[in-house]
Design a protein around this nucleic acid. Structure first.
Lengths: 198, 198
DNA sequence: CCTTGTTGTTATCGACTGATAACTTCGAAA
DNA sequence: TTTCGAAGTTATCAGTCGATAACAACAAGG
């Protein structure tokens, strides 16, 4: 019997992973608790029992995703007073995880509809911004520029312009992608080097 | 009698405005056709009859919003070969319209769930990016930087960090907001040579 | 006045969904 | 082996939603 019982903590963890996948696709309103349950191989009422409600599950997922993103940035800044360029490598790792950034985007978008989701989303966003500043000692302007680029990447990932299994590229996509990774030094002309992904 | 009959075209236009408001809050899945109908003061089945389906209405709304955004940018660029700084004023006008940018964000987020919505969202995004380049003659890097900032503003607007009726400001919000509006001219700043390069 | 096309409504349905309740099964300790 | 708390399921419901169908009301031309 491969089917073993897990503790509530283990099952919750597994359900959160399933929920990240599900919510990344459908968002809060567009995902059913049964979607999550099926992904994890349990029954739908059990999801409700472990998290109380779909709403509480979503809040948990958003917070969890934010924590994982912050951890990626910490790992990407090995030394004190790291540079923003070091953190930029973290984005590659975030994009490699197909569902992390899209689920966060859904959290931002859903902030409109629900006050508690809104508070959670704002807190997560502030935490990430603050972490970037603390890790690098970058100025507010530089950090905002960094976060802006991250936001663009997040949207592009949600639209599958970049990331695993992307759509067929159109001219503006290749142009936009190729001009990434040149944050400041566009002094030395155009350099169509293969900087598409790591 | 304030209640007058409208032509199908007029009613559709009015319904699109209502749908922008409704979809901006709930997104595609989180908004009912009855929400839209009530906002416009008509019955729910009539919405379906005019647009065919909720899905078709959403596609129409996204496209319409993209057109309006492009028009704002065109109006903000009075002369040929305008500068990006000119277009930046357009963002203020976009933010003043409480629902335009959030509804577009919902379109991007929903691109994951539906193939046709995805295609529409990508097309709209490419059109806006291309328009910015055409209006200003900016390099790809500059345009990407501009669009990135716009994406950040869109998310901040969705979370009501900026825009009409914002939430109570926390330190990271004020810091982030105050460091906007310095897109290029940080040459006369404190440490122009201390910039990290990739 | 009456006919006719368009605008708009009411009635209704089938499918879906989150949540509750009650029941069952496992596994480890006693 | 028996016990018992935790893990997990089936059954079910009350509310919701998009869509269809049938009907009604209005306005304008003949």
């Amino acid at each position: 019997m491969t089917r073993t019982r897990l503790t509530a903590a283990e099952r919750s963890e597994q359900l959160i992973d399933a929920a990240i996948t599900a919510f990344a696709k459908g968002g809060y309103a567009g995902t059913t608790t049964d979607d999550v349950a099926r992904l994890a191989g349990v029954s739908q009422p059990y999801v409700i029992r472990l998290f109380g409600s779909k709403h509480a599950l979503f809040i948990t997922v958003i917070t969890h995703v934010s924590d994982r993103i912050q951890q990626v940035f910490r790992d990407a800044a090995p030394v004190e007073n790291a540079q923003l360029a070091d953190l930029a490598d973290g984005f590659d790792r975030l994009l490699a995880q197909r569902y992390l950034l899209p689920v966060l985007l859904h959290g931002f978008a859903a902030a409109n509809a629900d006050e508690e989701i809104g508070r959670t989303a704002r807190t997560c966003y502030g935490d990430i911004f603050t972490l970037v500043r603390d890790l690098t000692g970058a100025s507010a302007e530089e950090a905002v520029d960094f976060i802006s680029k991250g936001m663009l990447l997040t949207v592009l990932a949600s639209m599958r312009v970049i990331g695993p299994d992307p759509v067929e590229q159109t001219p503006w996509m290749t142009e936009m992608i190729s001009s990434f990774g040149h944050p400041d030094h566009h002094a030395h002309g155009k350099d169509p080097a293969q900087r598409a992904e790591r």
